[in-house]
Write a protein that binds this DNA or RNA. Structure first.
Lengths: 231, 231
DNA sequence: ATATTGCGTAATGAATGCAAAAAACAGTGA
DNA sequence: TCACTGTTTTTTGCATTCATTACGCAATAT
């Protein structure tokens, strides 16, 4: 036995572990939040939710703690869990941070993207344009998300991607209040054209700046719709 | 009763809620991780930890789930909880992301920092230089952290700050493997001088680039020490 | 001697029970 | 009618208990 082995701490096994119940509950609640099945500000009663999901309170509570640490739900001791309702300042900050993540993702992607990845992005872009021509907003939105995720993957930084996705999940409920005017949508489409061109030229500074500004405009569009909807 | 009230969801009370047990356990484990009381890779036995903290397993498990969602511990179903040991690739990615957060924080700070905040940073900088002169690495390190946090606060973006702090916590255990050579330390000090000067000029591009490069050099220093320590 | 299989033990996953805190309600008084 | 207060009820926080899975060790066969 080598002496170094004595102080070597145990490590987690690498094998695929099948999901536990509370992990699946986290997934399920994620979906329910994304689908809007649970509205911002809504109270989450533990026994009612547990009954609805057909689980006991224990794994549900563990899941709620996890979602709370991701700020998707807000816990108030002895009062209960609520679907997080972001304030104006939080939305502002979140989009601002998102603009930085997008810029950085764009810069890294320009350095690291492969030809086949660009081809995939180009294809997805074409599909998105088709949805735009048909004014199919839901599908346009999903194609849009896929493009951003492809760029994120091309950046080859899992930490960045995880952070991006986590923030994106939090902002997801706000997506409905943007792109409602045809003019804004038109502008967003043009920006995407420019972004694709910059990526093909691998112009990091240009693409980074385009994506940063794109996000800030999205923020403005969201805040515009937000001000006369909630709060 | 106004009709709008019917669909209005309840909101969490705004009052200060005193910490629950599992929140305090999260805090305590945070501290233990920061202090190095729990080493990376170490296994966390639920009953042993519960006994040590004098709590039952339920709130401890909730705390472990929270820490796992922050990637400070790794859960392996039916195997247990382990203090997360970052791989080389994860460290690489994390520092790269950190460099982007620092750059953005620097850029925002240049736009938004007040004179009194600059004064506070200048004072903390002077204190840090004193620790450097005495070769007091622990205190130097803490002063360094405070400076970065002051810049972060000056950026006026809580989302950014939270993200920064969360990532910083994960990288904290690695701090020991950097700044071991006097030359590198000297260089870091010089970079800090330049950063302070750029902040005083409110030169966003310059400060951003300085902080980005500063972080990337820190990454290299950490990875250098890392390669012949663990793994 | 080594590999393999089976069983016992220990650990985690999940459910239930109990106590405390907060919310809802009713009743009383002004 | 409104405000206040005492009580009831609901809901959360935590401990305990039960069930399931993984690990360790030994015995056996090759």
């Amino acid at each position: 036995m080598p002496p170094s082995n004595e102080s070597a701490p145990a490590s987690p096994p690498l094998k695929i572990a099948r999901a536990t119940l509370h992990d699946r509950i986290v997934e399920r609640l994620h979906d329910m939040l994304i689908e809007g099945e649970l509205a911002p500000g809504e109270r989450l009663n533990e026994v009612a939710l547990a009954a609805r999901l057909e689980v006991s309170r224990t794994p549900l509570r563990e899941a709620l703690r996890v979602l709370a640490s991701q700020r998707l739900v807000t816990l108030s001791p002895h009062h209960g869990a609520f679907v997080t309702r972001m304030t104006r300042a939080e939305i502002d900050d979140a989009f601002e941070l998102m603009s930085a993540l997008e810029r950085f993702s764009a810069e890294l992607a320009c350095e690291r993207v492969t030809e086949s990845e660009i081809a995939a992005i180009r294809a997805e872009h074409a599909e998105m344009m088709a949805y735009w021509a048909r004014r199919d907003l839901p599908r346009y939105y999903r194609a849009n998300q896929r493009i951003h995720d492809l760029i994120n993957r091309a950046a080859r930084n899992d930490e960045l991607r995880e952070t991006y996705l986590a923030l994106n999940r939090r902002l997801h409920p706000l997506r409905l209040s943007s792109n409602r005017s045809a003019a804004k949508w038109q502008k967003a489409v043009e920006e995407h054209e420019a972004m694709l061109a910059a990526l093909e030229r691998r112009d990091a500074a240009e693409l980074g700046e385009l994506m940063r500004r794109h996000l800030l405009e999205k923020r403005d569009a969201v805040l515009e719709g937000w001000s006369h909807e909630d709060r």
